[in-house]
Nucleic acid binder design. Structure first.
Lengths: 238, 238
DNA sequence: GTCTATATGGGGATAGAC
DNA sequence: GTCTATCCCCATATAGAC
């Protein structure tokens, strides 16, 4: 590969791609440096260790994406003044910076997105710490925004729905190979806009779904008759 | 650990747990055999290689879970006769066998679920082949069931929504640490029934959501005014 | 900043005794 | 079926010349 940039950036670019393809433990520093066309020792010179390299790979990308998320949310809220920002606009502000990242050539998006998706399923390797450091502020801001849009939904339910949304998003990022193989080419995963629109529609509906009759505990198995679900009605249950 | 079973099962149990905690490349055969209290060479005797061990770890669990999924779906369809099985019941048949697996002690569920969640984000290591071999039939059956429940929704949209549902589910399985840390204890991730109910409600709403005006291409950015979305109304757009 | 060479440890797999 | 011992390879990290 060895793009035309500095040694440091060549290492980061190739590490990002290889980590996405083979995982962290599955990617040796030798593989990275030989793909980047740099010397093996350069990694330990520019970064302190492999773990610090991993951290840099993440934060280089997450920082601008999260900044843009917050900027979009700010814009929505300023525009709305004292009004309410719709759930859809909040979801968009959360999802778009990841699914259509700025300043990254389309060829570089797949590795980035695969890598970010992998992050969620990787409990070890300090990935959790990196993630929380970068995401805590973002999560707080969006949780509050959803809460303002849906004041009747209890805070923990808001968090669950945000969690499911993140899951659908991460899966869309990292596991597009599944839908490609299962659909036999019926679904076009290269269409970023189509993905965003579908994901937004799905997530908005889920986030705005009516509260279950009882949030906790088992519900009767036979469930209710197949009639259509009511939309965000007033919740007499609570 | 070394549960009281045979050597082969001790290896499988400990491999499952360690793969979930540290990943495939992050777990050495030595770590597995010493945790299991068996000899290192036993792995290559009972399984052919590390890759074959990974395959066995998965299929040992996936086979009964998928069998139960199909059995639940069969039961729904038989009960409905010529009628329609609701989206909610189909979602339940898909989700419950994973989130409340039978025949596995609660202590053993976390490793299993973490591991299954990890599978989706792991493109390499033959995991794809294993997954597709086990899942192809299941995906086909559930796709058809959703299609029958929602005949107006085009097939590729059905697949996208199933994809998002799988994502929310996988995330719930593998990444419960995220919601735990972000919520600061507000969300109880040990409550399997609560998780199922919330996930089902979210997914059903997403799957039944109205079709967007145009499935492809970019939509006007300002989106529409904040009014509530209509629920599963008749879709005049199509 | 970049290279070579090497220290040090761990990896998967197997041979062959029991 | 189970064990010990070993082969051979690759990993991260560092020392020190250029």
């Amino acid at each position: 590969m060895r793009t035309g940039d500095s040694t440091k950036e060549r290492i980061l670019d190739n590490a990002e791609r290889l980590f996405a393809e083979r995982g962290f433990d599955g990617t040796s520093l030798r593989a990275i440096t030989s793909a980047a066309g740099v010397n093996l020792a350069a990694v330990n010179y520019h970064f302190r260790s492999k773990n610090d390299l991993i951290q840099e790979v993440f934060s280089r990308r997450l920082a601008p994406i999260n900044a843009r998320r917050l900027a979009l949310l700010d814009a929505c809220e300023n525009e709305a003044g004292n009004g309410v920002v719709s759930v859809e606009r909040v979801v968009r502000a959360f999802v778009e910076p990841l699914l259509r990242p700025e300043g990254i050539a389309p060829a570089g998006r797949l590795p980035l997105q695969t890598l970010l998706g992998r992050m969620y399923a990787e409990p070890g390797r300090n990935v959790r710490k990196i993630f929380l450091g970068e995401m805590k502020e973002v999560a707080r801001r969006f949780r509050d925004a959803f809460q303002r849009a849906l004041p009747e939904v209890p805070p923990n339910e808001i968090l669950w729905r945000l969690h499911f949304t993140i899951g659908a998003m991460a899966h869309t990022l990292a596991a597009s190979w599944i839908i490609e193989m299962l659909s036999g080419g019926l679904c076009d995963t290269s269409d970023a806009n189509g993905k965003i629109e579908r994901l937004v529609a799905f997530a908005v509906a889920g986030i705005e779904s009516p509260l279950p009759l009882r949030a906790h505990g088992r519900r009767a198995r036979p469930s209710r008759p197949p009639g259509p679900r009511r939309a965000l009605a007033k919740r007499e249950d609570l």
